[in-house]
């Protein structure tokens, strides 16, 4: 068991390092120069020498290898450098933007999971026999909708037509309703699809017949026997879907004009603010890796068979 945890944590760190390195190389290879973009602006009225001084201060012309070593060292100590555009520490920008994105992503993820479970439950209870095929087609519908279009449509329908949720100066939580839905719908689709397929598959397994033969009702079997077995594979997918969640956040924050990591990333790309981009890439990678590590470590806890395979005999 210790070996398993050790190797998974090691893999996670490796992925993180690779994400840092690849993004570093790509950002360095980008044509253009953030220092020039900002300070060549005639409004500043800076001379060529002054710009050269600034460049030296930012170490913009130093050796790439040195910069790499320097940056990775700084990252390890929690120093993400300074944003050229805003002129403040990147860590300060992150501190300002991260909480709202975490709230958005967390709520969206919870909403997606809830939606997936609702779809799965509705299509498996007897009362909805006729609606079953409609409910089962929902995931395919959800997964085909582009996030930006969905966001705009939700605003159109719920805010402008029905006037249910304000988008202009909404309350703190009110303003989250539509963005959360925008991210949650497409994410819930693959979860629901896998859940539905697994439930159908588990229902054909012999132990379900044995449970029925004990006198257990269909509902009892569904909750006490099928649910956990069907849910396990969804966990793996949930980890992977987290990546989509981050991508969804960028678009959604832009569409709804929310401050967050997504909108920060968008600005940083516009101004080639390398330090900010590098930090966002590493933060996103860290979040992705952590979630998947948690899933991997959770698996043996939920599935006794896996625990045995890993040598953790009770």
């Amino acid at each position: 068991m210790a070996r398993y945890i050790f190797s998974r944590v090691g893999q996670a760190l490796l992925v993180l390092w690779a994400a840092f390195t690849i993004s570093f190389v790509l950002l360095q290879a980008m044509p253009g120069d953030a220092v020039l973009i900002k300070f060549q602006n005639p409004e500043y009225g800076l001379s060529a020498e002054q710009i050269a001084d600034i460049r030296a201060a930012y170490d913009a012309d130093g050796s790439v290898v040195l910069q790499y070593v320097h940056t990775i060292g700084n990252f390890l100590t929690g120093d993400f450098g300074y944003s050229l555009q805003a002129g403040v520490a990147v860590s300060a920008q992150l501190a300002a933007n991260l909480p709202s994105t975490i709230r958005l992503a967390g709520l969206a993820f919870a909403a997606a999971a809830l939606l997936a479970v609702i779809i799965a439950v509705l299509s498996n209870i007897s009362g909805f026999g006729r609606l079953r095929s409609f409910i089962q087609s929902l995931p395919s519908l959800f997964v085909s909708i582009p996030t930006f279009w969905l966001g705009i449509m939700l605003i159109q329908i719920f805010s402008f037509r029905l006037r249910l949720v304000p988008v202009i100066n909404p309350g703190e939580w009110e303003g989250l309703i539509l963005p959360v839905l925008t991210i949650a719908l497409p994410i819930s689709a693959p979860m629901a699809q896998i859940l539905l397929r697994n439930i159908d598959e588990v229902l054909t397994r012999p132990f379900v017949s044995v449970a029925r033969a004990k006198g257990a009702s269909h509902t009892f079997v569904l909750w006490r026997h099928v649910a956990k077995n069907a849910f396990l594979p969804v966990l793996t997918v949930a980890g992977v879907l987290f990546g989509e969640l981050l991508a969804g956040a960028v678009i959604t924050e832009t569409v709804f004009g929310l401050n967050g990591i997504g909108s920060l990333a968008e600005q940083a790309v516009n101004f080639q603010d390398v330090a900010v981009l590098q930090a966002i890439v590493v933060i996103s990678a860290a979040a992705f890796v952590t979630i998947n590590l948690a899933v991997d470590l959770l698996y043996p806890v939920l599935d006794p068979r896996l625990k045995a395979k890993l040598g953790g005999v009770a």
């Binding site: 397994r205 012999p206 017949s209 033969a213 004990k214 077995n229 006794p304 068979r305």
Partner: peptide, 21 residues
Amino acid sequence: IRGSVISLVPQDPGNSLNPVK
């Protein structure tokens, strides 16, 4: 009546018990 009056011993013991209970 299932389980109390009439019960079942199934074919395939390997798959007839819930693996996570």
